[in-house]
Structure formats: C-alpha cells, structure tokens
Design a protein around this nucleic acid. Sequence first.
DNA 1: AACCCGGGGGG
DNA 2: CCCCCAGGGTT
Length: 344
Amino acid sequence: MDFAKCLIEWYLSNKRDLPWRRTRNPYKIWLSEIMLQQTRVAQGLPYYLKFLEAFPKVEDLANADEDEVLKLWQGLGYYSRARNLHATAKKVAFELNGNFPDTYKALLKLKGVGDYTASAIASISFGEAQPVVDGNVYRVLARFFGVDTPINSAEGVKYFKELAHKVKNVEQIAVYNQAIMEFGATQCKPQSPDCSVCPLQKECVALATNKVKELPVKLKKTKVTKRYFNYIVYIDKEGKTILTKRTAKGIWYNLYEFPLIETVKPVKSKNVLLEDEGLREMNIERLALYNTKEIVHKLSHQHLYTKFWVVHLQDVLPNGIPFEKVKEFAVPVLVANFIEDFGF
DNA sequence: AACCCGGGGGG
DNA sequence: CCCCCAGGGTT
C-alpha cells in the first residue's frame, strides 16, 4: 500500500473525535485552523467552543468589537491571530456577502491566512487538492523519506511542499490532510514515538537508519532577552484603578495592562519609581511592593521580570475603573494572574 | 533570511 | 533546562 493510503487507513481507525472534524463549514474550519496555529489541540479546543457559542456565524464575529474578541482570546497567545481573525471576519461578512473565498489562491489573500491555513481550508471545505505542511507533516515526511534538509530554511520549505504534493492523495484530500497531521501528532510524535506499532515502520528511512531522533532537522534557537516591568496599580479614594491600552508595536498590542514603567535593570527602591513623571503628579498616600518575589513571566523570546507596586492615592482618579470592571478588559496572562491573586 | 509574536505542556 | 505546538507577518 502506498504512503497516503496507509495513513488514511490508519487515520480512520485512530482519529480523535474533534468538533471541527464534524463539519465542512468554512467559517468553522477557518476558526479552528487559526486557533490551532502553534497551539495544541488541548489548549485550543475550549476557545473554539467559546468562540462558536459567542459568534455562531461570521457575521456575529464581524459585528463584535475588537476588545470583545481579544477578551475571548485572552490566554491563547499570539494575539495578532485574534486581530487578523476579526479583520478577516469583517471582510468576509461585509465585502464578500458572508461567503469565504473557495480557492487556495484566494484564501491566501486573507489576513492571518498563510500557506498552511489556505491549504487546510481549501482542501477540507472545498476539496481542492492542496497538501498541508505543518509541523506534524514536516516530521512525518522528514522521517519516512529520510530528509535532513532543515525544515525552516528556504530550501527546506520549498522541498517539503513539493514532496507533500508528490505523495498526497488527490481523491481524498480532506481526509488525507487530516490523516497525516493526526499521525504526526499522536503516532510519529516529536519525542519517543513507539515505532514498534507504526504502520509505516517497514518503509521508514529514519527507522531503518536509526535517525528517528535526529529528524526533522531545524536551524537556530532564538535568544532570550530580559526585560524589567514595574506595574503601577493605582487605588484611589473610591476604590478605582487605571488600565492603559498597549499601542506600541511589540508584545500584547491592543491589550490592556496597569500603567507600566519599564527599566533596563531591576528597580531596587521605590525612590526610582517616585521620580517617574506619572507618579510625581499623583497625590500618594502610600506605595508598596505587592510581590516580594519577582515574577518571571516567560515568553518564547523574552523573560519579563515583573514587580507590581500598589499605590494608594489621596484623591479621586478622573477616569478611574471600578474594581468590578477590571475583569472585563483583555489583559496578558501575566496581568490576569495578578488581578486574580490581588482579588479585584 | 532573520526576527518577532504567547502560553502551555512534556521530557 | 530544553523542545514543540494544525504558522503568519514584518523588515
């Protein structure tokens, strides 16, 4: 049996029952594909269900405020996905009469839709013969065919896409695409796959040459930079606080947070903070460090050493936010954890 | 081509 | 501590 048919057969008896596998609706397929970018099924699944409940149709998503979309996305990370999701929903709903583009080429033009996602939607929803190439596919192809070209080099991207085209099953493209990804996720896993029960073991080059652990090959590692965050948690006479929207390029764009003072080195004394413009104008009753141990929030390429400073004010903030409203804002997990712990 | 963009889970 | 995850966008 050939590669593709073997995967399809394996899939039909080993697949997980996931909600987006019970539909071909392009809105639902699109939503699931965006959410699962660089995200495990277990993490994305509850968000998928939440979004479909809040926004059953693309028009519902299009008519929401971006703040609402980001709030629902809170905790899933890579927030540009949520912003692009909303922008694309508006395009589909208001410019395309609620109809998703139905070809790979047209899907590619949508914000947040790249080669993988366009292939997934085109094949699953519309039956177009486009093979998906995601992290799972790179691994399965690299191992089975013994390819050591780095998957994240320009050459590797091109080579694996062409290889994917050669080995795909055109007649059952939707099932085949999900089969190879599922196979990579649960059988041909990154670490310690059980090759003794693999249906492809007899023809797998990596297994025959003892290179399962070495493949796929991936270049470089991102270096981590350290940043020092000081969040100022104001509390005024009416028990109100301040949240600000992040408007600079970089992490957490368009999410909310407490007023932030970022420093090059850790702040040792509150005197440093008192020199800050924002604080100097305030009528401070007392200022205290909330977390005695620095909180280290780790992103893939940044470590954020964070201190929360609680500042009680003697007067009333002009645009203060009542405590009970704080939880309505989309905030990074780092800030959400504080809000939960502090007990707003 | 290199870098940026989150958060969580597993070894 | 490392790596990876149904990747895409920007420079």
